[in-house]
Nucleic acid binder design. Structure first.
Lengths: 349, 349
DNA sequence: GTTAGCACTCTAACCTTCCGACTGCTAACA
DNA sequence: TGTTAGCAGTCGGAAGGTTAGAGTGCTAAC
């Protein structure tokens, strides 16, 4: 059912006011904020109607109203539909422009910037993908029967694992294995390797074992079960009064503790640039909401960055910050010629 | 000042009882737990004396007593001096024995095991050391003017960074640089490299720039500013009633949020195998205590594993669990011949 | 030095009261 | 029909009072 323009306007004022005060909003307060002349009685009757429709609740009969999750969702729709006014976040460029880049540092620092700019806890998930191109596979024998396998891509090292290797082979075994394995893997994506697997098997024979193990590593990687999750600014949650409620605080921390679940929640549909999940109806305990932006360069999805906070969140600000960060990443991209999606990815990874 | 044997005994009973109930302990309760016949009045007079000495406080006049930090410290001394009865923790061996080992996985899982076994939040810090031996340095050009530097050691990859490289050199430049750099670094420890730095400079000349950058990476690594900190089981804090107090909860989470400070707190003196920090007097906010065990193999310090929880912590259990884990690591070591400190390190890293 | 007995203290739980915030309703009005 | 002023009514939260019970400190006797 469609709301009248006035209902929308009143609801919008109420939600925004509540976002900032965290106190139930009375008809008199709305009257103050309303730009035209209107009586509080009229507002009261509209509020009663909005409550009937499920957009508001009254904690008790002699208090003002607070928005329901349904109201937040409507509000967020309006925010997303509106123009994205810029919000400038200092410090992002510094990290992107640095000459020497610790791969994980960039992510961690981006997360910190988002958290500081929004005043909420931020989360970044690096999505593993089987479209990543392998540059080199390095097998280093570190002990009798044990070798370290390092898989290097344009985006940095994606895996380093200890594997067992046969013991009674000659001393040249590892060197030879290195060469064979590199011929097979270097320059290809995991996807390509998987699709051409049978051809390769024939060539391998005596390195069969090592090959299998490396494929296993890559498959585990691409399975996404081990997506890397970075969380920054956990303690910022305590700045928001809903988390003085110990139950909410517990649910919140528990959610952050379960990295796999978090990683799942951060997933967005392929078409969606920015997703907002609000409250229990979207699978979030503890009075939480989660805003997630997808970061992709040249059509390749890199990962998701998001903000988690109370349902009563400043969605407008959060959306702007996430957009700005997105733009910074893309902006740098355009400074260079084509083919540099990979550069971008490197920096984000 | 020395306490009488009876005072010690009463204090011990009180501390242990308080650890389990989290309620002020009355003279009548101690009488129940005391193995000999003794009247509550006698206990009361002893309690009054202990309070006078600063070991106990009364929340209010008509309640029992609770231990002060001073009392916990005395108690912990007794625990550490006593024999370390074994406590078996399932699941540790599984991870150590796995054929394919993701380096970070072992740490994360060890942390999880410690947290589950103790019911407290666990922390593991991997200490960077300049005694680590470099196996190979790999420079991979990933874009014009940019290369990925991967530093491989026995313990896995310690660094992967993007650096800038000169652009107008021939195509063989990177290959040659790889060879030169490897000759210089492979097989040495960072310490050795640092001490022989001047000799090396002469050889380098045209790879001077790359060499400098790699040394920079290694030095930053060894500086310890980027010790890796793993935290598991944060939400377990809510199982303990002191963290229903929102202020304590906030201080606790804030502490975990500040990874650098945490890393500092985890440091132990060289001679100390196991350190216990209790409360504000030891630099911990939020009614916290921190038990840290040093893990070292063959004399080389690997890192610290610890447990953080309320001051009212089950120190006995925590100490046993940390000892058990320590022993498991060492135990595996002894199954193999000498020289396998490196294997161990690999698994812990 | 130890103990029984008792007076005393203080908290936590439970009422009651009261103030004030805000509403819903009614009746009048445009 | 929609809007408004006015007013009675509801309810939460703060403040204050009462009470029961837990546990002590003190005293006097052993």
């Amino acid at each position: 059912m469609e709301l009248s323009a006035r209902k929308r306007k009143i609801l919008g004022i109420l939600v925004e006011h509540y976002i900032h005060t965290a106190e139930p909003v009375s008809s008199a307060e709305i009257k103050e904020l309303y730009d035209e002349e209107i009586s509080s009685a009229t507002i009261r009757s509209e509020l009663a109607a909005l409550e009937e429709l499920g957009y508001l609740i009254q904690p008790h009969v002699s208090s003002g109203r607070i928005p329901t999750e349904q109201a937040y969702k409507l509000y967020v729709e309006a925010v997303l539909a509106g123009e994205k006014k810029e919000i400038v976040v200092a410090g992002v460029r510094d990290y992107l422009d640095r000459k020497i880049v610790e791969i994980e540092d960039v992510v961690r620092n981006t997360a910190r910037v988002i958290s500081d700019a929004t005043n909420y806890t931020s989360i970044i998930v690096i999505k593993n993908t089987d479209e990543i191109r392998i540059r080199e596979v390095k097998i280093v024998e570190v002990d009798v029967g044990r070798a370290l396998v390092v898989i290097i891509t344009d985006s940095g090292v994606i895996k380093d694992n200890i594997i067992e290797i046969p013991v009674n082979m000659g001393s040249g075994y590892v060197t030879a294995a290195n060469n064979v394995v590199n011929d097979l893997f270097a320059g290809r994506t995991l996807k390509e390797i998987k699709s051409s697997q049978t051809d390769i098997e024939a060539e391998m024979m005596q390195y069969h074992d090592i090959f299998d193990k490396i494929v296993m590593l890559l498959e585990e990687y691409a399975s996404g079960r081990h997506n890397k999750v970075f969380v920054e600014g956990t303690s910022k949650m305590f700045r928001h009064p809903e988390f003085s409620e110990i139950d909410n605080a517990r649910d919140f921390i528990r959610l952050l503790d379960e990295k796999e679940r978090l990683s799942d929640l951060m997933k967005t549909d392929d078409e969606i640039e920015l997703s907002v999940r609000i409250g229990r109806s979207d699978g979030l305990d503890g009075n939480c909401a989660l805003v997630t932006a997808r970061y992709s360069i040249g059509g390749t999805e890199i990962g998701n960055a998001g903000v988690i906070g109370p349902v009563r969140m400043d969605y407008d600000k959060v959306v702007r910050v996430l957009h700005y960060i997105q733009k910074e990443f893309n902006g740098e991209d355009r400074e260079k010629e084509k083919g540099n999606g990979e550069i971008k990815r490197r920096e984000q990874k």
